[in-house]
Simulated scan of single mutants.
Amino acid sequence: MRAAVLASGRGSNLKALLEAAERGSLPIKIVAVGSDQAGAKALELSRGAGIPTRVFPSKDYPHRQAQEEDLLIWMREHRVELLLLAGYMKVLGPQFIRQANFPILNIHPSLLPAFPGLHAQRQALEYGVKVSGCTVHFVDEGLDSGPILLQEVVPVLPGDTEESLARRILEAEHRLYPEAVRLLVAGKVKRVGRRIQLLQQEGSE
């Protein structure tokens, strides 16, 4: 499956996806990587892997809709069948979601629906939860509100800081995201309203 990735930062989840694809455990081809940040390390990583990249700086567009229209054109040019958000720090608008003719996945560093949005690890520590984790979900028109595909629990340890918790959650993300994508591409994901059923084998219910 032809996948595009949008990332705003260092690209560690992109790297995990690329490594899984190279091992043959993830049947996708990442055909394009985009970012809203020209200095994103994810772009450097992609260029090193020979993947076409493009920057869509917000300052170059009169409004978000124009930026997202450009994104859609770019994805159609690359014949994208799947969009993966990997640390992309902009919320995709309702019109983009409606016009995209491919699934969109995101990974978030909390056990949604708890602690959506920015600084999820800080939110978890301030709330005093005993466990946190990460969630792979389908993207809908809300903020981190789409149907949940997979989650992994990460314990909150005594003395954890935002940085130490974030590091351990990131390790879980690197396992969870490729597995979620693999299940989707293998046809083992069935959506029933907000609920996601994971099929045990092809064609099973």
Rank of each mutant, 00 (worst) to 15 (best):
M1Y: 12
A4F: 02
A4H: 01
V5W: 03
V5N: 05
V5S: 05
G9S: 08
R10W: 13
G11H: 01
L14F: 08
K15Q: 15
L18M: 01
E19G: 09
A21V: 10
R23H: 12
S25W: 11
S25L: 14
L26N: 05
I30S: 08
V31P: 03
V31T: 09
A32G: 03
G39I: 14
A40T: 05
S46V: 00
G50S: 07
I51E: 01
I51K: 05
P52C: 07
P52D: 09
V55C: 05
K59A: 15
K59Q: 15
D60K: 10
P62L: 12
Q67R: 15
E69Y: 04
E69K: 13
L72F: 03
I73Y: 14
W74R: 10
W74L: 09
E77K: 13
V80F: 00
E81W: 05
L83I: 11
L84A: 05
L84N: 01
L85I: 11
G87K: 06
Y88A: 07
K90L: 14
G93P: 08
G93T: 11
G93N: 10
Q95T: 15
I97V: 13
I97Q: 10
Q99D: 15
A100N: 04
N101R: 15
N106G: 04
I107G: 08
H108V: 11
P109F: 01
S110C: 02
H119D: 14
Q121S: 12
R122H: 13
A124G: 04
V129K: 08
K130I: 13
V131N: 02
S132N: 06
S132A: 12
S132Y: 01
G133C: 11
T135M: 04
V136W: 01
H137L: 05
H137M: 09
D140Y: 00
D140N: 11
E141V: 13
G142S: 06
G142E: 09
G142I: 10
L143Y: 05
D144F: 04
D144A: 06
D144M: 07
D144I: 10
L149F: 09
Q151K: 00
Q151C: 10
E152T: 11
V153K: 10
V153H: 08
V154Y: 03
P155L: 11
P155F: 10
G159S: 06
T161E: 04
L165M: 02
A166D: 04
R167T: 13
I169G: 04
I169T: 08
A172F: 06
L176G: 00
E179L: 12
E179C: 11
V181C: 00
V181G: 01
R182C: 02
R182I: 08
L183I: 04
V185A: 00
G187H: 03
G187R: 03
V189G: 03
G193N: 04
R195V: 15
R195P: 12
I196E: 03
Q197V: 15
Q197I: 15
L198I: 14
E202I: 14
S204A: 12
S204I: 11
